[in-house]
């Protein structure tokens, strides 16, 4: 009850602040759009020849969406460190607000920002030739939101646990690289040697990307879809749990 109310209050404040600095939202948008315009055309020819099923956009846009969810969330921790420095976090911790709400409200803001970026991305992709069922787009947005939430929770948690930009930056980069390389976001993992495919199977994001690709091809009943969604939900739950723990530990 008070968790929902407090989350909303924290979200509203964070959202207003984000709206006051739209340049960050725009910068966040630039990246996927650049990928789309500069890397997409390259893929047109590759997609036809390599292990992908479907056209270049059906393969490429799910990868970009997953990437947006991951990277959109992974670096938000810098914001919470800045807020902690200016005393905002302590000020909220000394109020009766639910500890979980203090982080969830911020994560919700990140999810909204990421969703806006995802919608712009999908819109741009449509103009470049992406054609998928509406249901696929919906599932795509849900997945992006879940991934964004999970990574925002984790990044905010790391930010509050370390309180240091110098610590957060390498941790976030170290997390990002294997996730990206082993997920088949940029190239299909079917091109990889057997051992690499085995390793990649342990990467939940590979399955999430595959789930979204299946959906983009209209294969809604493929079990991978449920696996992908379930994995994303599990990640959010883990993130929320860790995040709330870290916030509670602030007053230890």
């Amino acid at each position: 009850m008070s968790f929902v109310r407090d989350t909303w209050i924290i979200f509203e404040r964070s959202m207003l602040l984000a709206l006051r600095q739209p340049e960050w939202v725009v910068i966040g948008l630039m990246q996927p759009v650049l990928y789309l315009t500069l890397f997409g055309p390259l893929l047109q020819t590759i997609a036809a020849t390599s292990g992908f099923e479907g056209d270049a956009w059906q393969v490429f846009v799910p990868g970009l969406l997953v990437q947006l969810g991951i990277f959109g969330g992974l670096f938000v921790g810098f914001g919470i460190i800045a807020e902690w420095r200016s005393g905002v976090i302590d000020r909220q911790l000394v109020s009766p607000a639910s500890r979980a709400a203090i982080i969830t409200g911020r994560t919700l803001r990140d999810v909204v920002v990421i969703l806006v970026q995802a919608i712009v991305l999908v819109g741009a992709a449509f103009f470049m030739g992406l054609r998928v069922p509406a249901g696929a787009l919906l599932i795509g947005l849900v997945l992006v939101a879940l991934l964004g939430a999970a990574f925002s929770f984790i990044s905010n948690a790391i930010g509050m646990a370390t309180k240091s930009e110098d610590a957060l930056a390498p941790i976030a980069n170290t997390l990002a690289l294997p996730i990206l390389l082993l997920s088949g976001i940029l190239l299909p993992m079917t091109l990889a040697p057997a051992w690499l495919q085995v390793v990649a199977n342990f990467n939940p994001f590979k399955h999430i990307v595959e789930a979204l690709r299946a959906v983009f091809l209209g294969h809604f009943s493929d079990p991978i879809v449920w696996i992908g969604l379930l994995l994303a939900v599990v990640l959010v739950v883990i993130g929320a749990w860790v995040g709330s723990r870290v916030l509670t530990a602030q007053t230890k």
């Binding site: 407090d6 209050i9 924290i10 509203e12 404040r13 207003l16 602040l17 006051r20 600095q21 800045a82 807020e83 420095r85 200016s86 005393g87 905002v88 302590d90 000020r91 909220q92 000394v94 109020s95 009766p96 607000a97």
Partner: peptide, 26 residues
Amino acid sequence: GYVSQAGSTSPEARVGQEIVSHARLY
């Protein structure tokens, strides 16, 4: 109520928003 030595507001936030948001937490 607690007024920390380290401040309590974000530089980018508007004064009124910070006050109202904080009060609503109570």
